[in-house]
Amino acid sequence: MDILTRSRTKSPWLLHYSCGSCNGCDIEILAALTPLYDVERFGIVNMGNPKHADVLLVTGPANWRNYRVLRNIYDQMPEPKLVVVVGVCGSTGGVFDKCPNTLGGIDTVIPVDVYIPGCAARPEAIIDGVVLALGKLEAYGT
């Protein structure tokens, strides 16, 4: 494993963007960062800047207003990049199925690598999903 892959997988930097979520999953993502779950022990750091991020965590369904923002963020992330969707509504539209302003799951807008189910997804599940995604990052390096 070269140094880049190694650092990417040992310390992936996350970026969190909330589309049309209900906030449920967003606060669970934050909860994963705080003392009880503390993902920083895996070297996972939450970044505010797409240009520094390896993994994009997205919650909520895409809608007519934010899909451009989302794509913009995605495009700004350097390769290799992964997209992890947190929550049912971001995966498929979920409970917001009949909402007129939504487009459906995030994968209608950008490619998604890992879907984390749950409404809201539990922090354990979120950590699991991110670790699963790291396997993919590792595969990029070999």
């Binding site: 589309c19 909402c99 007129p100 302003n101």
Partner: peptide
């Protein structure tokens, strides 16, 4: 604003 607008008021008329 409007980045998170889903249209719940309308959807609530449909369920």
């Amino acid at each position: 604003i409007g980045y998170m607008h889903r249209g719940i008021e309308k959807a609530a008329e449909l369920k």
